[in-house]
Design a protein around this nucleic acid. Structure first.
Lengths: 354, 354
DNA sequence: TCCATTTTTTAAAACGATTTTAAAAAACGC
DNA sequence: GCGTTTTTTAAAATCGTTTTAAAAAATGGA
């Protein structure tokens, strides 16, 4: 039933051409301000288009031009603040370049594959993807669409892929170093379960570089959720020999830990210093304000945009790896600079939902 | 330059037809499992398609079928948690129905208009929009695309529009009532600056219904940001006659208020009870855990999906307004459990044992 | 074998644009 | 007025798919 709903269809160049008694070629050229049509005609066409509320059909353009100006972005979840901040940043940049970002959330390999397939069928010109596993990478390579990962792929020859990521090793190193320099001697780490996690290596290396002893018991595994921080802190409270500072794998678990300590009347900072990782908005809702490591969302978005657009428009084949250095954000939770009470005016105050 | 980049193009039905020496009609029908082609042919076509990694071109399908299976969703900002939760919920539902949600953020009328235009040119079949002003509504009406607002439009005959929203009046009423029933007599309200705000009316009406006095000074205006709650609390601390409970227009400002009180060693709850509005994830990061009013994101998403898909697929012209009743989420910040327990203990035992 | 059905296949048109080719119209010189 | 050059426009091809209507092939009955 091709012609059903005709009344809902908009007007086309053909219609304008019919009305003005010119050819569709003239209309097409006039609308794109071609020098090939004389001015009077051009003005007339544009006026009529305006009058009839003409909307160019991007679909038809895409088909003939073999260009969709769309990019697929896959994130694990919208409501994890880090990803929504990234989405915001990426979207803003691509829109400036006239590309449309289509964001889909998918948190398992299966869902990711499904989402990517949907987008491939829609002929997106490229993808921005989270860290994905080697199987997925292999599958993706068979498709012709270029992509940029926003984390470094593991267990693969990473020079085969475009990616942009922050140097988590260095971030954890800086965090640990900050605690050491502030004067803490006994430093624990709330780590990810995964063994060869760069953050963990950064923590350990900093301790080694500053000649400090590594206390196995103080490396507490978790998954990075609020409750992991909470439980980790409770774990610490059970120890005979407690650390006096704690590096956390992310802000959310750091906040969980803070809450657990406060519940038991352990002061943060004072009794224990805590440093997070991400610099996510939640950090400015916490009491004390969270000292953390900034993941540089804006910079990451910048690099992703440049890299992907260059790849698409110049049909670049070489892959590039961009690693961004994270920065320390010193607030209250490590107690080094308590006087600076600017919590209220911090980065993006969050806000009303309407 | 129509044929540039040919090497990047995928293979088409035409190509499959050429290889198998059949017509494109046969290929098209076979791929969609039509009964019109006999099984042998169908299998052959599908095998070949699989082998060549054929990807249907949704663009071409859209053009001929006049159907894009896409919906535009405009939100003010990704990184306000309420909107990302809504996005997640909406996206999930539409994907089940084979629609693609294209989410764009835009926080001013101009940006919204631009975003909507982009999506109109891409021929989305409908929109999901935030509360927009009458000018925008008027402009939108001229376009043929159906839309659903996820808040109630103001200053307009709202029966002209589809919308789905939570009953904020009732939410605020419930929040206030909860405080009253818990035993608080002096209740303040952190309100939006806007005069005829439903939440404010809910607060006032509850006070009236329970025969309580309205203390003008305790109605503190703000914009709903973290800092507004923070500043509002500081305001309260300056008063000679302070409220003993505070209804906040949203969770974020409630958390801001909590922080301000805690800074001055005012206990929440205990010295002052605080109730939020939204039931946003931040509420479970706070200490105390925030008692709040749930905005029912999942239900809102459900209703939006049903309403919009029905409008699109059945070409419904009548507009519908769906109002959802919010629910109280009782956690720690109003201390009701503690009070109730005390109350119950008192009544039952009249006793003075610990 | 032949005709009438039924099943299977296909050519051609359509969707809304862009681009190319070629022809028509206008401008110009002699 | 005619030939040549320049400007403008019309017509046709194209993109990848779906659909219609008609042709071709297979089947069945007499």
């Amino acid at each position: 039933m091709i012609k059903k709903d005709r009344e809902r269809k908009g007007i086309s160049q053909k219609e304008i051409a019919r009305i003005l008694n010119v050819s569709t070629a003239t209309v097409s050229l006039a609308l794109r301000n071609s020098e090939k049509v004389n001015e009077k005609t051009r003005v007339k066409v544009k006026e009529t288009a305006e009058l009839l509320n003409y909307r160019p059909c991007e679909i038809a353009r895409s088909l003939i031009l073999n260009k969709t100006w769309s990019i697929g972005l896959i994130i694990p979840c919208f409501s994890i603040i880090y990803y929504s901040e990234l989405t915001d940043a990426i979207q803003k940049r691509f829109r400036e370049q006239n590309y449309l970002i289509i964001t889909l959330s998918a948190d398992t390999p299966e869902k990711r594959k499904e989402a990517i397939t949907v987008l491939l069928n829609r002929k997106v010109e490229g993808f921005i993807l989270p860290k994905i596993n080697p199987d997925e990478l292999y599958w993706l390579k068979k498709e012709k669409a270029p992509f940029v990962l926003y984390d470094r792929p593991e267990d693969s020859d990473y020079t085969d892929y475009n990616f942009v990521c922050v140097d988590k090793f260095k971030g954890a190193y800086k965090a640990t170093e900050h605690l050491i320099k502030t004067g803490y001697k006994k430093i624990g780490f709330l780590c990810e379960i995964r063994v060869d996690e760069p953050r963990k290596r950064g923590y350990i290396e900093a301790l080694i570089d500053y000649g400090m002893k590594i206390e196995k018991e103080w490396i507490i595994p978790g998954a990075g959720y609020y409750k992991d921080g909470y439980n980790g802190a409770k774990e610490i409270l059970k120890m005979k020999k407690r650390p006096e500072a704690l590096v956390c794998l992310n802000d959310i678990s750091a906040i969980g830990a803070i809450r657990a300590f406060q519940e038991e009347n352990i002061k943060v900072p004072g009794d224990i210093a805590i440093i997070g990782f991400d610099n996510v908005k939640e950090g400015i809702y916490s009491l004390p304000l969270l000292t953390t490591v900034d993941q540089m969302v804006e910079k990451v978005a910048d690099e992703i945009t440049n890299l992907l657009i260059e790849t698409i428009e110049n049909n670049k084949k070489e892959k590039r790896q961009i690693i961004i250095e994270p920065e320390l954000v010193i607030r209250e939770s490590c107690g080094c600079e308590i006087k600076e009470k600017e919590g209220v005016t911090g980065k993006n105050n969050g806000g009303d939902e309407e």
